[in-house]
Design a protein around this nucleic acid. Structure first.
Lengths: 344, 344
DNA sequence: CTGAAAGCGCTTACAG
DNA sequence: CTGAAAGCGCTTACAG
């Protein structure tokens, strides 16, 4: 059962391969091929079960119709929500998606390898992690279509889509402040990413706007620390901060550490201590009730990222909707859905 | 920054493309190319940063060095544990892995499409679901290397690796029976898969061996039912079965339904009711303490599946270990790790 | 309206 | 020991 080739179809239909190719690629009228001939060729192709060999097409055209999605880790909810959406959307444009993850462990290596050996993909959607700057620059230099998701590097001029982090934290803070909380702590991590800066900034701004002090209320964990160390830091932070009423955790990972700390201290949510979490990855459902959560719309982010990529690939069919804010080469977009769970 | 081609290397090194190809593919001595020449060519290739174009190689050789992994769903722990392991193992043999899922919703469609459009992959690892028989037969007919994982179709003669379901259930049953339980229920689903049959058989055998009755103790849910319906069925089963002491859930999905039912009935595990679960997919950690769990070693299954596939691809480097039981065309292997949690 | 020809980047008999 | 040539299956100027 050999695969039928374009040549086979040509032979059976009694025409030249070129003609078959034109017809099958919808260039029949453009090439002024008679409708009769065209439909006859179509017919033959169908009855013979012809499918073009994508490898040959790719070699000839230089396009693979494949997109590369690079995420931090392939296990986890973020990837799960994302992959489905991106795969579906990509399919609508005739693209397939392959995944790679940087899996923090083999940081330096894997991502490079992945990129190099994958230069066959037509475009990239990347969730950037610290240290990827160089790789991304290379892609840009290579004129590869790239969209960053969930974060970006201020120094690199590349389209990206992420939630409005500042606004998100402002909303969360406004909420707890309005509820009457005053002594609000903030737990973050020393990751050199813009979204972390924005979140901290928003915390500080909202506190000062409310005339509240932030002295000794910010805990910055080390990215390198392991989970247990993190939990201990948070635990002692909570225990040793006088009159602490609420804590804002800047990422969902930090939130999980916080949850464990609160558990160990025997505190009850939200009565003893209120908790607000900035949910990076739409994993809200992991949290128990009694937590205020800034939730990121993973689906919207993913869809938008794909749209931006398609635009670069010349398939920019943004239809009626053009309300994507485009700063010079940059795209920032995102809404924050505010989920209210604190019942104080 | 154009990609350098093999031809470029040849030109720079002052030899023919063939020679370069031979050297780079490690056929230098086989072709009796002088070591001096060979190392010079290697040198040029390295300094020029040459990487063969996999698309061209694939077109020419008919091999893609890509494996297809088809799972039920891409979100979920099973996929997460699997993907990592299979990807790593495959890399050791020089293969990449692409994923697809059947995502029960678009059952009939997607899987077909996935297969057809992917005929470029060199081999398949498939977690079969009911209805895939035809597709798998086609692959076999096409002489494509295929390994089934986690289940198999008795009618199709293809290598597969799965846990010993019968043995697993026997162990679990032996345990609870030994603990003194007598009225043990069994909850299963009307899925037409061999492993479900094996599990039920083992339940019946162990009950009869212990001289216990199974009348009205087996609940078979409909596969088509949604979650809520399932929970209600299980709930009423538990409530309406007199003197029920323990329930064996034949899959982890059923186990989750059971958990919810027990919760709704306000029962306490394992005091009011003991629970045993056959964990399809190594997601044991999802269960609370107090549950007896038959656990599948996902890692071992995945590794074995890959080995079997490599064997078909002629890379059978099974080293010293050859204790894979091979029945005619069939492979059954697996161990069950028995995790004891019931403290009665 | 349609066909012959070149070429994408490789590998591999074949011929020296 | 090494090179010229064919060919994997397509697409696309180019020439009628």
């Amino acid at each position: 059962m050999k695969r039928v080739s374009l040549k086979d179809i040509a032979r059976i239909a009694g025409v030249s391969p070129s003609t078959v190719s034109f017809v099958l690629n919808g260039k029949a009228k453009q090439m002024r091929i008679s409708e009769t001939l065209a439909s006859r060729i179509m017919e033959v192709a169908k009855t013979e079960g012809y499918h073009p060999n994508p490898v040959a097409v790719s070699l000839r055209t230089g396009k693979s119709q494949i997109l590369g999605l690079i995420v931090e880790t392939i296990s986890g909810n973020f990837f799960a929500s994302l992959s489905r959406i991106i795969e579906d959307e990509a399919a609508r444009f005739g693209y397939k998606v392959v995944y790679t993850s940087t899996e923090n462990n083999r940081q330096k290596g894997k991502e490079l390898i992945g990129m190099l050996s994958q230069r066959q993909v037509d475009g990239y959607i990347i969730t950037p992690t610290p240290g990827m700057e160089q790789d991304i620059k290379e892609l840009i230099a290579d004129n590869k279509p790239v969209v960053l998701m969930d974060s970006y590097f201020p120094g690199i001029d590349v389209p990206h889509v992420l939630v409005n982090n500042y606004e998100g934290v402002m909303k969360g803070m406004a909420h707890v402040i309005e509820k009457g909380y005053r002594r609000i702590g903030f737990v973050t991590v020393d990751l050199d990413l813009v979204q972390m800066e924005d979140r901290l900034k928003a915390y500080q701004d909202s506190m000062s706007k409310a005339g509240l002090d932030t002295d000794n209320l910010v805990l910055t964990l080390k990215y390198e620390e392991d989970k247990e160390q993190g939990i201990e830091s948070v635990t002692s932070f909570i225990k040793n901060t006088p009159d602490l009423e609420a804590v804002f955790f800047a990422t969902n990972y930090l939130g999980l550490l916080g949850l464990e700390s609160i558990h160990r201290l025997g505190l009850k949510l939200p009565d003893d201590l209120a908790m607000i979490v900035f949910d990076d990855h739409d994993v809200f459902r992991l949290y128990p009730p009694g937590i205020t959560c800034i939730r990121q719309p993973a689906e919207e982010i993913a869809k938008t990222a794909l749209e931006l990529l398609m635009e670069q690939l010349g398939k920019g069919n943004n239809g009626g909707e053009s309300k994507i804010e485009i700063s010079p080469g940059l795209v920032i977009r995102g809404t924050t859905e505010y989920v209210q769970k604190v019942n104080k």
